[in-house]
Nucleic acid binder design. Structure first.
Lengths: 347, 347
DNA sequence: CTGTTAGCGCCTTCAG
DNA sequence: CTGAAGGCGCTAACAG
């Protein structure tokens, strides 16, 4: 016998399984003598309840499924952290699966969560929602984060990426930049698309010519973009600002510029998006749009918990990013004083 | 009826549940006609199998439990990433729980994993193993990462923290530092203890006087330590090197020194431990000991999978950290050339 | 207070 | 090839 079961304990304590169950779940209607006998038997046998069986019987798992695009990089790990902190505060376990940008696997993964979790949180900016939910019971509580436009009437959390991008362009223009280049995220990613759109809109508003470089949210794309801009640095219409669609690309570019000895922001300003923890630690510290990553994860858990408890929630909750001005677009010399706004991390 | 069950499908297709099960699991011994009828019924009903019930019946979950101290900071998120990448390559889901340095909760958490996972990976440098495993079935496959000395005869992965710390001190001495201060991790943490021990041993070997500041692995402790050292900077025996027990504290100290305009490493060298991704991105880039965080997580999954498949594994697999020399202890002026050893991230 | 008895939803012998 | 039946381990009425 590899694992003792509740029956073994019952036999050992010479009571019924019902009594064992009662004792182990702290019900009060059990005689003290029986209680002690059961507890003794349980420890003697090294009994640990089979949570899976319990879940089946209770139709309740106290776990939530989490599907993220990837765990790579600070953005997603911050999301996971936000989810985790709120979940563990509520005694919920997390069943994690990443989609790896593979729609078929994403669907499969979601299916295997059925019956193992009480609800799911899904962040899938590059997956087709119809396809994903087509194969999923409509009754499964779910909170969507930054998913594509859909017809699901699900609880959603959505960052206003377009507004954020516009705000950043406004800032760059306000500090006197004109030849602002945007380094975009992956083309199939709805967040990346919104950021490009916001960038274009703001540029148009100021009568400035947009220029978009292709990227993929990874650091290396930033390095490559910097390479391009470096080669043009002497030219008459060299860029005076690089606005990357996320922080990691901005950082990649910054590293490359630094290596080339280019003055940032003197020669070229750099801005990112997300405000990952790293953004304030690098030097010069990165100007970016704070989206409150961990806070979003935590909020998703709160809403999911309410949904699981029986609430209804079909709202799309918008989150507006906040501009965080730091050295890469601010006073280049003043590196000794943190900008006040960068204090007080959310989450 | 909220969720269709296998019976509903059977009734709809007018066959037995056994046939439905066969079809859905791809068994071959089913007539084509029946197969099609079942599939039609399943999609018509929007049937998604209840994975929990399936697990119970098969006594197999295809999930592994993961217990980490916390998800805060890059160290643990890197671990999680390493585990995740290997796990998802093997089609394993992850049931995540963090211990939050609360022994009672850690035990409870581990118990609720019984029957919901096929095995567990535990990283708990500050928990008492006897206590933790006392309440756990001995037959549950498990891989321990950086746990305290124990009598479990479990598969283990253990970083040689003492050797790593010694190597770092050797390096600092080799570049001419003598007044090397160590900023320690939390006192109850076995890894932190080993690092202090290694530091002391190496200092003694060189006849140098050790000095240990109390810390907790968080950035703020680094800031505080820098504060202390700053106040002594004029003195005759001011520190010429700060060796922090992990990267985040080293970074905290560096930020503080930078803000004070102190020349690093000219005035004081700084070194960390772990080689989190951040270490090479900050400026000046941080000298540190690479432990291959993500690689350890991945390796733990590999060993756990073998254990689950029925293998035996009671080995304690040692990992020796690798010295990564970067600007905070190297040539301060040469910021344009990456040190060769920093290429090729493990994991 | 305690035991008996049905399930929870699925898989899998075992007969046909 | 197909169906009936038992069981995975636990909980929750329902009777005593």
């Amino acid at each position: 016998m590899v694992h003792a079961t509740i029956r073994d304990v019952a036999r050992e304590a010479d009571v019924s399984v019902a009594s064992v169950s009662r004792v182990l779940n702290g019900h009060s209607n059990v005689r003290a003598a029986v209680r002690e006998r059961v507890q003794a038997a349980a420890t003697a046998l090294g009994y640990v309840p089979h949570a899976g069986a319990r879940n089946l019987s209770l139709a309740r798992t106290n776990a939530i499924g989490v599907m993220l695009p990837d765990l790579h990089g600070e953005f997603f790990s911050e999301t996971a952290r936000g989810i985790d902190s709120e979940a563990s505060a509520r005694g919920l376990q997390l069943l994690l699966s990443n989609a790896h940008a593979n729609p078929a696997r994403a669907v499969e993964t979601l299916r295997t969560m059925r019956g193992r979790v009480d609800g799911v949180i899904i962040m899938a900016p590059d997956l087709d929602p119809q396809e994903m939910f087509g194969h999923l019971p409509a009754s499964l509580p779910a909170v969507l984060i930054n998913c594509r436009e859909n017809t699901q009437r699900r609880a959603e959390l959505r960052v206003d990426n377009a507004a954020g991008a516009e705000a950043m362009v406004e800032h760059l223009v306000a500090i006197g930049r004109r030849r602002i280049v945007h380094l975009a995220g992956p083309s199939g990613n709805t967040e990346a698309q919104a950021r490009v759109a916001g960038y274009r809109a703001a540029m148009a508003r100021h009568g400035l010519a947009p220029r978009v470089l292709a990227g993929d949210f990874f650091e290396e794309a930033g390095t490559a973009a910097a390479e391009v801009l470096l080669s043009e640095l002497g030219g008459s219409n060299a860029a005076d600002a690089l606005f990357a669609a996320n922080d990691m690309m901005a950082i990649g570019a910054m590293m490359r510029f630094r290596r080339a000895g280019v003055d940032v922001p003197g020669r070229i300003a750099i801005a990112g998006f997300d405000d990952v923890p790293l953004a304030r630690l690098i030097s010069p510290a990165l100007t970016t749009m704070r989206v409150g990553i961990a806070g979003i994860g935590a909020r998703a858990v709160v809403r999911l918990a309410a949904l699981i408890a029986g609430g209804v929630d079909q709202a799309v909750e918008p989150r507006t990013p906040e501009l965080i001005v730091r050295e890469t677009t601010g006073a280049a010399t003043n590196t000794k004083q943190p900008v006040s706004r960068e204090q007080g991390q959310t989450s």
